[in-house]
Amino acid sequence: MLATQKAGKILILATESCAYPGANAVGQAHSSYPENVFILRTRAPVLFPERFYIECFEKGISGIIIMSCGVECPYHGAYEVLARRIDRVFEMMRKRGLDPTRLRLTAICTVCTRAFLKEVQQMNEIVTKLGPPAAERTDTPPAEAS
């Protein structure tokens, strides 16, 4: 698959109660998706500071999908805080000339196999089109991000 080889790596931050089992359900169904997708298990993605995302892009990750439990989040109020934080990350990405579509916040449940595949497919198209994030950066990162 030439197209996927060219595509940069996609990082998925998947909640252990919903999205991570959802990704495993895709595996159980033997539904194929691009191999440039790497899934990390999290308790709640509210954990990650803004800079974490920026640094991922700096390290060469081309796209990030946060797969949360959405409003069904077992940690009350965490999803809302996360959503606000991601807005700030988008802002920081724009400032750095990073295409904000490289980052997506979504909710995936334990059996949302089709939604998972759709998200991955869409992000793969985006990163294939955009290329690696390094090429995109126009200005130097502000000091606070280091």
Binding site: A44, P49, E50, Y75
Partner: peptide, 11 residues
């Protein structure tokens, strides 16, 4: 503490 990590991100 439930271990959600909301504190981690802001320190």
């Amino acid at each position: 503490c439930t271990g959600c990590g909301a504190c981690v991100a802001v320190c």
